[in-house]
Amino acid sequence: MGFFYKWWQVIICVILSLFSSSLVEGSHMSYDHESLDAFFGKKTNKEISRPRTGVFYNVSIPSNFTGMEISVVRLRSVPFWFRGVNYSFSNIPPRIVPRPNVVRIAILYENLGNWSSHYYNVPNYTLVAPVFGLMAYNSSKRAFIGEKIDFIIQGDPITIQFPHVMQHETNSTPVCAKFSVGGKVELSNMTKPYVCEGHGQGHYTLVVPSLPSHTNSGSKRFNIWWVLGFVIGFVGLVILALVLLALVKDAKRRKLRKLERNSEGGELFDTFWIGETKLPLASMIRTKPALENEDAIR
């Protein structure tokens, strides 16, 4: 009984592991973009211990995030309001006030590259450009990257330019998608070819309507059926092996009993067991011995 119980435990563990792996492969892997922003902030503070105001720094990215690009600059709020800043993919015009008002701000430029679709997506739309992040932080003497802040735009809006746009099968014109800090998605038309306007910090990209994909759904159904067929076949083989093993054991037990009966020579004896060994048991009543010549003894 214990032997079969252990084998059934093994079978259940194998089935659960195969089923869970199939679910993981069939599901869409999700990534937390808020944790990514926090990681960028910690990485910047750790790598740049003594930042200088007005200097742009490129932050190195670990090898498991290859494809992303991060840069940062610290600015004083008053010169920032007068001049703005034009760098990388964005143009922040003058007359933008940080909220809440701080002495120094740090602007973090993020290019998620080929990781964009892992962290951001729009239902029924496909990304055709990398996600660019424009994040503002309070920058004090203690920390380069402090708490997140926002912008109050009193003049022209912020512009985001996308120099690289991926080819897509649809004939639709891309539209701008802004991902706010709270996760809300806002869609708007481009003001110029591959240029979007922004009214605050956040993440920006270009998207087009997605085409219905019958091939992907068919391949997913094929993968699920293939996994189920494999699991059923594997379980069937294990059960067949257990049945054969039980039959072999039963055949050995029958053969052993037959040998025991032959060894007894047809004479019935009581038997007893010592452990797993069966031994004959002789009767305690024995025949009284008889003398051959009683007269001689007398």
Rank of each mutant, 00 (worst) to 15 (best):
F132K: 03
S283V: 03
N293S: 14
S63Q: 08
F80H: 05
F272G: 11
V85Q: 04
D150E: 14
F4K: 05
K141F: 10
P157V: 00
I11P: 08
I232G: 13
L291F: 10
Q9E: 10
K288D: 03
S90I: 12
G229A: 10
F272R: 07
V85I: 15
L108A: 03
K46Y: 00
F40A: 01
L112E: 00
D295M: 06
P100Y: 11
P130A: 12
F234Y: 09
A241G: 12
T277V: 13
A282Y: 01
N262I: 08
M190R: 11
K42T: 05
I297H: 12
A241S: 12
T287G: 10
W115P: 01
G202N: 04
F56E: 14
S116D: 10
R286A: 13
D32G: 01
N189W: 04
P163D: 01
T44D: 03
T53Q: 10
S30N: 07
S35C: 06
F40Q: 00
D150G: 05
L75I: 09
S30R: 02
K258A: 13
S116K: 06
F151I: 00
S117C: 02
E292C: 05
S88A: 13
N121Y: 01
V207R: 00
P163Q: 03
E69A: 14
V59R: 13
F179N: 04
P289E: 13
E169I: 06
T277N: 13
I70A: 00
I153Y: 09
S77R: 12
N58P: 14
I297D: 06
K288N: 00
H214Y: 10
Y5D: 06
P98T: 09
N64Q: 09
G202C: 09
F162Y: 05
E260Q: 11
G200N: 15
E260V: 03
E292A: 11
S217F: 04
L268A: 13
C196V: 05
P163T: 02
A290N: 07
L237Q: 09
A246R: 07
V231D: 06
K141Y: 06
P280W: 07
N64W: 12
Y194E: 10
E276T: 03
A106Q: 08
V208C: 07
G146Y: 03
E110D: 00
W7E: 02
K148Y: 04
L75K: 11
I145G: 04
L279V: 15
L247A: 08
E267D: 10
